[in-house]
Design a protein around this nucleic acid. Structure first.
Lengths: 100, 100
DNA sequence: CTGGTTTATCGTAATTAAACGATAAGAGAA
DNA sequence: TTCTCTTATCGTTTAATTACGATAAACCAG
């Protein structure tokens, strides 16, 4: 009945979105990564591997998980990759969580 | 070295706590339950089963998950159980999440 | 081009989560 | 007591997560 958005189903209450972000934050290593990225402000990459007591491949997997959820962005800089927090998604998450 | 709290390790930054709460919220059904409990204000029980397209045993499992994480409290009232949000834990979660 | 550095992906094994039906346990009503 | 209603738990199957080592891919330095 509206002009646009034929089946926009009010994402601001969408349990799928909130659940997917929470799921990504549902592991201590990934929470630590988010806290670290927040504190450094700068984008960092390989330092995260040193930070955690996990194999490099495992850390890379966790980073992918956070990226898939939209919580972080990765930028390739030469031979390495720099990650930083995606504040848009993070804020949206905080807003939805706050509505609980 | 302090009088109390021999090994209090600053829970306000503890990734374990935040991760465990997020993990509990990492499923659409459980997010829906939290939203529903928030909106009703009243404690509810069997209505949650009708709300979701899931078997009663599955819903009960999700409720247990939320309860184990501390997000909800359950009270036995006669033959039925009433659940309500545990605001202490929820607020603690929101505070920690906000620090991200 | 060759070698070193950095990160992502593949393959795999072990653990955990999700869903269901069936069953048990508890409280009231008849 | 017996029957019904409500909810939790058990047992099971299927799917997803977590972790690792090994390997591939991309980039620079020499």
């Amino acid at each position: 009945m509206d002009k646009k958005a034929p089946k926009k189903h009010d994402e601001s209450l969408d349990p799928e979105f909130l659940a997917s972000v929470c799921k990504a934050l549902g592991h201590p290593a990934r929470v630590s990564i988010m806290q670290f990225l927040r504190n450094t402000d700068h984008c960092i990459c390989g330092e995260i591997v040193e930070l955690l007591p996990l194999a490099q491949s495992t850390v890379s997997q966790h980073l992918k998980c956070l990226k898939d959820a939209g919580l972080i962005k990765g930028e390739i800089e030469g031979p390495r990759t720099c990650y930083c927090v995606n504040k848009d998604i993070l804020n949206k998450f905080l807003q939805m969580a706050g509505a609980l």
